[in-house]
Amino acid sequence: MPTKIEKDSVTGTETTGHEWDGIKELNNPLPKWWLYVFYACVLFSAVWMVLYPSVPYLRSHFGGVLGYTQRDAVAKRLEEASGAQAQYRDQIAKLDIQAVKADADLNRFALAGGRVLFAENCAPCHQSGGTGAKGYPSLADDDWLWGGKLEDIQMTLQHGVRSTNDDDTRVSQMPRFLADGLLTMPQIQAVAQHVLSLSGLDKPNADGAKLFAEQCASCHGEQGKGMREVGAPNLTDKIWLYGGDKAVVVQSIAYSRGGVMPAWAGRLDDATIKMLALYVHALGGGE
């Protein structure tokens, strides 16, 4: 509060009473229109406070007489968005997956949507972009346990792998050769060496080869090239789901492996599963 109000002798304007180095500040008034705009803003905010959520209480807040919340607004927007997607999704649900791929518009929609759906549902195990991790197959490479055609992928998605709540699930069981007493540890070592030699990682082992023909070839094939009908991996390629060290291979033979994937048919609708299959197929390894 100014202590002394004085009039400036030159301009006749009052000073604010503030003085710096002998220079006094004139109290020049604001223009009226400016002030009215300011009042209008104050009025506007008062109305706003009544209409919209404004005053915070201790535990909640005043919600405004319009009952507007951003949560509702988001829900409404989402509903609108899924309404807009319906025309595509309905068609995708109706058509055969190959027909969806053949339709450029539907395919583009499926790939764009599949990307998001994959991140939501699949990426926790298979990693983003289908990179894969130890025990969770990469979906971007050209090595498929159960088949890499569109229909194969769709089937795997629907019924899962070793899924306990789906009767049509993809299932196979590799024996636990040591634990079930089928092979001794030295025999397993020999088989492991033979398996590694198939992809040039180790020297050939005649004993191992013989045991492999007896015990393993029925699923993995005589050449070790695997068999997709039973999800038996190709052992001759450079891809190792659990790792390509001898110790890991010994472990696999001795105690078996058996990855699990849920059946998605009950959780995701048909269109969603097709979109995911198309997306996975386009990651680079689709057949």
Binding site: Q127, S128, G129, G130, T131, G132, S138, A140, D141, D142, D143, N234, D237, K238, I239, G284, G285
Partner: peptide, 18 residues
Amino acid sequence: HDRAPLYVTLSDGSLRNG
């Protein structure tokens, strides 16, 4: 360049980038 996967090892051992 794709961020994920950064590279993919293919069954013949060759590498692929997206």
